[in-house]
Nucleic acid binder design. Structure first.
Length: 826
RNA sequence: GCGGGCGUGGCGGAAAGGCAGACGCGCUGGACUUAGGAUCCAGUGGGGAAUACCCGUGCGAGUUCAACUCUCGCCGCCCGCACCA
């Protein structure tokens, strides 16, 4: 009798759906638990990364449910996005909506075949008007709060995707996060969200997230990039202009020997206009701007600067300081200029040496001096202020504070906290996204679409060409509209929203997916949120997770939700590798989940993926490993199926005291409960949980060989039932079938999780290891409750130990209760 | 350069200062069999005839009765950030 996974998996998937086994009521008296995995973009088919992500989530959801929690475990589709539109361009004819929906249908089918415990009634897709209506609505809330604004700025432009990108979507070496094309800068008017207003809270509230991996928190911290310092005003000599510089080292201000502006700095034009430097400087600015973002910001790029001919005045020292421009100064950071302090900044030091600017020492290391002539590197540590007039003698932070308050007193500057974080650019020059609900009227200006007029529907008939202009702009019926304010002729905004906006609030929608009077029912979000366990790839450490945190804080401030953070616990799963590399079409090392499910079944696929590595680590795919898991399931089947009748007829309670093999069997059963419960419940170590179940199976195989007369039926029954229940979160179909054939009615997934009997796992006898000088030399059997003193006695008495010690002097004996005795001899 | 992670048999991985290698894969042998690429049982870090003994968790020091585990210094691989003023 072979385990027929095709029949069994289909049978239970059908029955679960019919019985609504995974449908979750909105409320319950039981403690609630929201288990969520990052919903997928419907790219076509599931890949192994999805299977891993969702298998992990399913174990957690099922385990929590069996432990008495009321578990929300939903699934949906992050369905706006470029690939749909690119497919339309490439294959002609196919509309993004149709392409997307057919992908969703295929992937939903795959998810169902994998047997995940989703409440499918809550499914939604972000490209449906019912959903994006509320994405638009949320945009309006941000707009009304002054958190959405349009401005002209030098923005990241991906020539391949033919759209702008947010800073977070430009990754290492300055390439597009999606297509890895080198990103360019373009001067465009774009919509932004003021995420910078929330920089401090986004940083500080990371402390509220002990359940997040340290790594992710550090990445967010670095991205936000908080620094403390001061702004200092340097008046331009012979003019009313002022150069405001940001520095983290106001204590070095007396050491400034030049000032550098970013080439794009607005003051540059003014400084050079009509001077003999004009031509030379313009040439230089053009040269710098021609450089790509990568070359521009690479450490390797040679630092180049040019004197503008103008000077400014150091307000503290009164010194006249030359103003230059240089390629390494970024307009976007701080105030777009840098004060050059060669003695105390390595970069400035090298720059000054190259161009011959003086090096002026204003900080001395404690107990030592510095000589500019012989210095080989800048002194960047803290130290004692010198050559700094009234501030001489102040040390480190003290000096910084003194200089800053003096500046404030004189009105020459102020203390300032600076962030690396930039505002979130959300407009995209593409079609397949949520429309930005804004109308431009010649008379009334920028007018938000009234909430009652939402959703602004995406028109279906549109030409898709990656021209760099928004496709909606070519669609007169869409563009031309009446001004909501004056009724006159007006034009709609034709850019759409970044899809990260859709995924920044979807986890609220799952609580009330059909809600039509608002984005969600607040009673339900108050009940379920925050998400107790969120699971997904680390590639979203900054992007999605930072945006979602930002949204949550805005929504909280708007009084729309009651939680300050969206995700209490975060699990970032590792990648699925094959042949030492991430699975990818270009590498040709892709294993298709469909093929695995067809050949071995969903349970085997899930079991392998959970068994092969702990969830946070990368997983190395192994066809033989899959084979092994398949064999294990068959081994379980061959064990349990023939015992089904025995189990069925056995008494449910173990009566009387047990001895010998029966006691051993029961111990193995309860030990497995303990191990699996701890491994899933507190560590997410599914691999070791599964190995514990395998050990229980191995013990059962031995127990099966015991003559029937010597076996205790109740012990066998308990062992088999426990085995099935422990398997249920990992291999839900097989467990359900085994549960049924062993005579149970009702789903195994509705069974309470077993607890172990501490008495049952107590050993009668333990093996005590005897070490001599830390090396294992003997093992002795001792009664379970043996005291350290008795252990010591027993070990020393042992003949073999005596012999090995010989005549040597015993220095020390260390008994470790229940484990070992270490005898130290000389 | 800065920050984080990892380094254990032929392979995936166990071991939360206390018997290194659980569990699985692979391999070897046996049983069953017309057959076995199924199944069951046993063995399996290296050296060694050995249940003796020695060696062994990237390398080198240290702490400890005891170190894969803690500390310090290197080496290698991976990830993130990087002219941030």
């Amino acid at each position: 009798m072979k385990y027929d996974f095709r029949r069994v998996e289909a049978k239970w998937q059908k029955r679960w759906a019919e019985e609504g086994l995974y449908e979750v009521p909105d409320f319950s008296d039981r403690p609630h638990y929201y288990c969520l995995e990052m919903f997928p973009y419907p790219s076509g088919k599931l890949h192994m990364g999805h299977v891993r992500n969702y298998s992990i989530g399913d174990v957690v959801a099922r385990f929590k449910a069996m432990n008495g929690f009321h578990v929300l475990h939903p699934m949906g589709w992050d369905s706006f996005g470029l690939p749909a539109e690119n497919a339309a361009i490439k294959h002609g004819g196919v509309h993004p909506a149709d392409w997307t929906n057919s992908n969703i249908n295929a992937m939903r089918e795959q998810l169902k075949q994998l047997g995940f415990s989703y409440d499918w009634r809550r499914e939604f897709s972000t490209c449906e008007p019912d959903y994006y209506r509320w994405t638009e609505w949320l945009f309006l809330q941000l707009f009304h709060k002054g958190l959405a604004y349009k401005k002209k700025a030098a923005v990241n432009w991906c020539p391949s995707c033919a759209t702008v990108l947010a800073n977070e979507q430009v990754i290492k070496e300055g390439v597009c996060e999606r297509c890895k094309t080198v990103v360019e800068k373009r001067e465009l008017a774009q919509w932004f969200f003021k995420i910078t207003d929330y920089a401090e809270r986004l940083l500080k509230d990371l402390e509220l997230l002990p359940g997040w991996p340290e790594k992710v928190k550090i990445m967010q911290e670095n991205w936000i990039g908080r620094s403390e310092g001061a702004e200092i005003n340097f008046p331009v000599a012979g003019s009313d202009d002022i150069i405001t510089v940001y520095t983290t080292r106001p204590d070095t201000v007396f050491g400034v020997t030049y000032m550098v502006l970013a080439p794009e700095h607005p003051l540059v034009e003014k400084l050079i206009a009509g001077t003999d430097k004009e031509k030379e400087i313009r040439e230089f600015v053009r040269k710098v701007q021609r450089l790509s973002e990568i070359a521009r910001t690479s450490v390797e790029t040679e630092k180049e600067g040019l004197f503008t001919g103008a000077y400014c005045i150091n307000p503290l020292s009164g010194e006249k300081v030359p103003i230059l421009i240089a390629n390494y100064v970024l307009l976007e950071y701080g105030t777009g200029c840098v004060m050059g302090v060669p003695a105390h900044d390595q970069r400035d030091f090298e720059f000054a040496r190259k161009y011959g600017y003086p090096i002026k020492v204003v900080i001395h290391p404690p107990g030592a001096g510095l000589d500019p002539a012989t210095m080989e590197a800048a002194y960047e540590e803290e130290g004692i202020m010198v050559n700094s007039g009234r501030f001489d003698g102040l040390y480190g932070r003290e000096g910084i504070r003194a200089v800053t308050s003096y500046l404030e007193e004189k009105g020459w500057g102020r203390s300032r906290v600076n962030y690396r974080l930039r505002d979130w650019l959300i407009s995209r020059q593409r079609y397949w996204g949520a429309p930005i609900p804004i109308v431009y009227c010649d008379k009334c200006g920028t007018v938000p679409v009234p909430e009652d007029d939402l959703p602004v529907l995406l028109p279906r008939a549109v030409k898709f060409k990656p021209t760099g202009r928004s496709p909606l702009a070519e669609c007169p019926d869409y563009v031309n509209t009446a001004c909501p304010s004056c009724g006159g002729k007006a034009r709609r905004e034709t850019d759409t929203m970044d899809t990260f906006m859709c995924s920044s609030w979807y986890y609220y929608r799952f609580t009330s997916p059909g809600e039509s009077s608002g984005p969600w029912d607040q009673a339900k979000t108050d009940y379920w949120l925050p998400v107790d366990q969120y699971i997904g790839g680390v590639e979203h450490a900054i992007l999605h997770l930072l945006y979602s945190r930002f949204f949550t804080k805005v929504l909280y401030d708007l009084g729309l939700i009651s939680n300050q953070e969206p995700f209490t616990n975060l699990l970032t799963q590792g990648m699925v590798l094959k042949d030492g590399a991430k699975m990818s079409k270009s590498k040709g090392n892709v294993v298709s989940p469909e093929d695995i499910v067809a050949a071995y079944g969903a349970d085997t696929a899930r079991l392998f993926i959970l068994f092969a590595a702990p969830p946070e680590r990368d997983l190395k795919w192994s066809d033989q490993g899959v084979e092994g898991c398949y064999r294990f399931l068959n081994r379980v089947w061959r064990l349990v199926a023939p015992l089904a009748d025995v189990v069925r007829q056995a008494p449910t309670a173990v009566s009387g005291s047990l001895a010998g093999v029966n006691r051993e069997m029961r111990r193995a059963t309860h030990f497995a409960i303990k191990k699996v419960t701890e491994d899933i419940g507190s560590r997410f170590n599914f691999n070791t949980a599964i190995s514990a179940v395998m050990e229980l199976v191995n013990t059962l195989y031995q127990y099966r060989e015991v003559p029937e007369a010597d076996r205790e039926p109740a012990v066998l029954r308990e062992a088999v039932e426990t085995l099935i229940i422990l398997l249920a979160p990992f291999v839900p179909h097989a467990a359900e079938e085994l549960w049924e054939i062993t005579g149970h009615t009702g789903s195994v997934h509705r069974q309470p999780w077993p607890s172990y009997d501490p008495q049952a796992i107590v050993e009668d006898e333990i093996t005590v290891v005897v070490q001599i000088n830390g090396r294992v030399r003997d093992r002795i059997l001792a009664p379970a409750g043996v005291s350290p003193g008795e252990m010591r006695e027993m070990a020393l008495k042992e003949e073999r130990v005596q012999k090995l010690i010989g005549g040597r002097e015993i220095v020390k004996v260390i008994p470790v209760p229940g484990k070992l005795v270490n005898i130290v001899v000389k």
